[in-house]
Amino acid sequence: MVKIVCKNQSGDQITFGWFDPLWVSSIDGLGTDYDVYTSKNSGQDGENYNGSDAKLRNIVITLDVKKADYQVQRNRLYSFFQPRAPGVFYYYEGDESRKITYYVEKVEPGGDDNDQVRTLTVSLICPDPKFYALDDQLTQLAVWQGCIRFPLRITDPFVVTKKVNTLIGNVHNPSAVPMGLTVTFRASGTVVNPSLYDVNRHELMQINMTMHAGDVIVITTGDGRKRVKLISGGVTTNINNKMLYPPKWLQACQGDNLYRYNAESGIDSLSVTIKSTQAYWGA
């Protein structure tokens, strides 16, 4: 069974499907749509392939609404879909579920189609055409593990936590769509120039700065979301200029992706996690 859920900027949700009161008559824009660029020389048979890219996604939902309930449902959609604010479109089919961020293009009432129902059309624009899994994948390269167990026994020395170093972690991507990463560096002491190295592709992503105890650096590498933020003393600062030049925005390609973290000094005071979200070209 297919179900569609839209969530707006306020966190409210509305559900569409093959059921009342908002019966899906048709839905377009869930597949793939690419622009292919070619060039042609004089006298050439055919053309040369220059490249291709995915277009923005336009999801158009046509709904059948019973005439007796039409005005209520029309005004409900007008109130729910607001301009200039992002929402999230969720698509459920069988055991698969995916999501995509949208902006509202229009809500269009239809005419008198028959004696029983009238139509409403909802058009959503998705600047990022990729669908994403609902849950994130978390890879921990170095974390602090609690050592307190109950019943409590006091020993000398009394160890509250210990650091577990993995150094190298694997981010698996079963899809052909590269996954952007959210890399988080946390310092429990002084750390100089923390970095993450792509073992497979020999690329280094390094932040040229000194971290102090309590500092957090968050790097996001997804398309349209490439940025570096420092959180220190409760204040968030953009530090894109601190990335080693030329910048390498590491992403997880299809298959296994091995990453190793490092620092010029203070590596024992550095904890690293990598968050990724599976991406798809279609629903």
Rank of each mutant, 00 (worst) to 15 (best):
Y91V: 06
N50I: 05
S79V: 02
G29R: 01
L141W: 04
S123R: 15
I125A: 13
D128A: 09
L22S: 00
P127M: 14
R118K: 14
N75S: 14
C126T: 05
I61C: 03
G51R: 03
Q140M: 08
A68Y: 09
T62P: 00
R98Q: 09
Y78W: 15
Y90E: 06
Y34D: 12
N114E: 02
G110N: 03
D112C: 04
L124A: 01
G51E: 04
D113H: 06
G94I: 08
Q82G: 01
R98T: 13
Q116N: 12
L120A: 02
A68M: 13
W23S: 06
Y34Q: 12
E105I: 09
T32H: 08
V36D: 06
K55D: 10
E93F: 12
D128R: 09
D33Y: 03
D95R: 11
V143G: 04
Q140D: 09
T62V: 15
P83L: 06
Y78T: 09
Q73S: 04
K67Y: 05
L134V: 14
N50M: 10
R98H: 10
Y70V: 02
F89R: 03
S39A: 12
V72C: 03
Y92D: 10
D28R: 15
K99Y: 00
G29V: 04
L77R: 02
R84T: 12
E108F: 01
D115L: 07
Y92K: 12
E47S: 13
I27K: 02
S52L: 10
Q137W: 05
L56C: 06
I59D: 01
V122C: 06
A85S: 12
K67M: 10
A142Q: 13
D33A: 13
L22N: 05
D69C: 03
D45W: 03
R74I: 04
W23R: 09
L138M: 10
D53L: 08
I100L: 11
I125Q: 08
L141F: 07
E108M: 10
P83M: 06
Q44D: 04
K106A: 15
L77W: 00
A68D: 15
T119E: 14
P109N: 04
E93W: 08
D69K: 14
G94W: 08
V65M: 03
S25W: 09
A133H: 10
Y49V: 08
T121Y: 06
N114L: 04
T38M: 08
S97R: 12
V24Y: 00
N75K: 13
Y34V: 13
K55F: 06
V88K: 13
T32S: 14
V107A: 03
A142L: 02
Q44Y: 00
N58Y: 07
D115K: 08
G31T: 10
D112W: 08
T38S: 14
Y70A: 02
P109T: 05
G110C: 03
L134I: 14
T119R: 14
R118C: 07
P109I: 05
D69Q: 15
D45R: 07
T62C: 05
D95T: 13
I100F: 02
S39H: 07
D64F: 06
S97E: 15
L141I: 07
Q82D: 04
Y92A: 11
R98P: 07
D136F: 01
R118E: 06
D95N: 13
D45A: 08
Y132M: 08
Q82R: 15
E96D: 11
G46A: 06
S25M: 09
T38K: 11
P21G: 07
T101N: 11
G43R: 05
D136K: 14
W23D: 12
Y103R: 05
